[in-house]
Write a protein that binds this DNA or RNA. Structure first.
Lengths: 210, 210
DNA sequence: TTGACCCTAGTCAAATTTGACCAGTGATCC
DNA sequence: GGATCACTGGTCAAATTTGACTAGGGTCAA
């Protein structure tokens, strides 16, 4: 699973109604072009595809404001809302060592109730531990890890990465349980989209290197 | 960059001469189907594509041993060898937070001279540090990180991940400088391919979960 | 006033990736 | 002795991703 569907669904949902360029702009505002595969082609493709699958409702507008091809505005459907939550839950709970998916999920995590967010992160911990165990048990030959030669370094990398992921997840759980942030049903949600006409402070900056 | 080209080039190179299924088997032996996008379709596609680009030399054989479509055997060309080294060096030095690419690179690192491997890992450290700095500098708003709300957790994740990557890289450099493993030009290289007829101890096991 | 840019809003072909499927061969089971 | 299952060695269509390109309009200085 790539992060693009989650990002695009989330952007359309937060906007209420958006055309491709707005989504593209939001993702740039979030810096997503730096840490995910949010290229224009991918975004427009995802929009069209999800509209075809009933996750979004598309409405073609006349090319009024400017020249160029006619714009299409999208709204999220009920099925899209469900898919959004499904993707979000999956991204939080699974350990697939993909920072882009996890980053996107963290950005949307407050769309869930606080208790559920914590429960999903705990599930993440369980899967991380299971993975760590299976790596150490499964890939260690009888003669000890030295038998593997430099290949053992790959295992080392994985275990190290699992431990780092564990630590970060624990910290996040702690902060959430400690009352940080505003989750679903707790008041004014955090707004992360650009209003119409608002300039993007992060646009085309001398940004994070790829 | 995905890891598939590096993996396939490396497999063909180690084999000297290999057909698609052998490559597929080697990658499974290395567990690559667990941690990279090494599906059959990707492997066969990469072989054909790289043959078209002159990185591999293809030779069609009669469908002798078994039925089914005629097999194609591949050998690495000089251009392929250069591309292999280029991909390997790039994968070691760049910080793109993709575990699959890094894992593949670690698996092949002993194809380089020891000193070069260390130098590439040092470059990796430099880029990691640069990334960490740009994240903390660029994404912190004037009012302090609290302004970001839960979005700050994404930054937190990145910094945490950069620090973990730094630590692992430092450890690896230390072990390599301490004389571990056998690098290019230092004697018998580590053999990581399945000989003809050798059974694959890791095939279709109850493997690491995805 | 025109040429050099940038901004908006996308399109498109090519490359890659996914996941399902296919067609022989050989072994095993009952 | 026929069914079935696993292994070998792939193919193929569909989905996705990439990266370059398009086209109209505005701005701004020479």
């Amino acid at each position: 699973m790539s992060a693009i569907r989650l990002l695009v669904l989330g952007a359309v949902k937060q906007h209420g109604r958006a055309h491709g360029y707005q989504v593209r702009n939001d993702l740039e505002y979030w810096g997503a072009h730096e840490w995910s595969n949010a290229k224009p082609g991918s975004i427009y493709h995802a929009l069209k595809q999800m509209a075809k699958q009933g996750l979004l409702r598309a409405e073609e507008l006349a090319p009024s404001t400017a020249g160029g091809p006619p714009r299409v505005e999208y709204e999220i459907t009920e099925a899209g809302r469900e898919e959004y939550l499904r993707l979000l839950r999956e991204a939080l709970a699974t350990y697939d060592q993909r920072m882009d998916v996890l980053s996107a999920a963290v950005g949307f995590v407050v769309d869930l109730p606080r208790a559920e967010a914590v429960e999903l992160l705990r599930e993440r911990l369980r899967r991380l531990d299971a993975w760590r165990t299976s790596v150490t048990e499964y890939y260690v030959p009888e003669g000890g890890p030295e038998q593997l030669g430099h290949i053992g370094e790959i295992m080392h990398l994985w275990v190290h990465s699992a431990d780092a992921g564990r630590e970060w997840t624990l910290g996040l759980i702690e902060r959430i349980e400690g009352g940080a942030y505003t989750f679903a049903g707790e008041g004014e949600p955090f707004v992360g989209v650009l209003a119409e006409g608002q300039e993007n402070p992060y646009a085309t900056g001398d940004a994070v290197e790829d």
